[in-house]
């Protein structure tokens, strides 16, 4: 049996302040080029799981193996190098609102730059061309020099995708990438993720609220409840009974078309 691409072993996260168990000894194997969708109620541990992988949140215990490297044991400096290979897009886009779009995209290269050049904002010609290319890719070439907060929500998320593209990531962590967007825009964003997954061979881990989106785009769905895995399998296997188990008895499925 070969090693899985990303192996999560008994990952546990306890938030000390509220004495809350966000992840409860969660184990998960992710294959390369998978489009893994994590679903679950608010507070089920989706965001915590994704943030533990690039250690925006320090896990309390457990291991995260990327190939043969244990991410949880890397020094801050090594982890910083490792994060270059992990793109991340966020629910609220997390752009520098007052900076132009192009600067936001260029920040995707920060991990690759020597410190002093980054401090002076001296991005190489190559990076700048690449940034414009990325923007072209997400259809925002003509907005390159507009301030980021002047864009609509969907456009801002596309900037977020362009920023992730700049990293040339192997893994893309998408934390509720469409929760702040309307249904039509959601599909456009999800299609960019799908494109990255298929054409760029990026392994995607996305958390989503809507099961319909998860079914449509995911190659595999993992459902979390109270920090534990309650479902793991292909999208087609989630039936009504499973759905009630994940979301509670009173839940009603809402479709996003």
């Amino acid at each position: 049996m070969t090693e899985p691409y990303l192996r999560i072993e008994k990952l546990t996260k306890v938030y000390e302040r509220g004495q809350v168990l966000a992840l409860d000894a969660l184990s998960l194997d992710v294959e390369k080029r998978e489009f893994l969708v994590v679903i679950g109620l608010s507070g089920s541990g989706k965001s915590t799981l994704l943030r533990c992988i690039n250690r925006l949140i320090e896990p309390t215990s457990g291991r995260i193996m990327l190939g043969s490297v244990d991410l949880t044991r890397l020094s801050p400096e090594r982890m910083r190098k490792m994060r270059r290979r992990m793109g991340m897009i966020f629910q609220h886009f997390n752009l520098i609102r007052r900076a132009p779009v192009i600067t936001n995209v260029l920040t995707g290269r920060l991990g690759y730059m020597p410190g002093w050049k980054a401090m002076l904002g001296m991005f190489s010609k190559e990076d700048q061309d690449r940034a414009l290319e990325s923007l072209e890719r997400v259809g925002l070439r003509e907005k390159a020099y507009v301030r980021a907060d002047e864009l609509s929500g969907g456009q801002q998320q596309r900037v977020g995708i362009a920023r992730a593209l700049m990293q040339e990531p192997e893994i893309l962590l998408a934390d509720e990438p469409v929760s702040a967007l309307d249904p039509a825009t959601s599909h456009s964003i999800m299609q960019y993720l799908e494109w990255m997954n298929r054409e760029r061979e990026v392994t995607v881990l996305a958390s989503l609220h809507f099961l319909s989106l998860a079914r449509r785009y995911g190659t595999r769905i993992v459902a979390l409840k109270d920090g534990q895995r309650v479902f793991d399998g292909p999208p087609a296997e989630i039936d009504n009974a499973k759905f009630k188990e994940i979301y509670g008895e009173d839940a009603e499925e809402v479709e996003v078309r």
């Binding site: 997390n94 920060l110 991990g111 401090m119 990293q167």
Partner: peptide, 14 residues
């Protein structure tokens, strides 16, 4: 949010 984003792309403290 932006802090998180810069950390996530592998940015240093500075």
């Amino acid at each position: 949010g932006p802090l998180e984003a810069i950390v996530a792309v592998g940015g240093s403290r500075w």
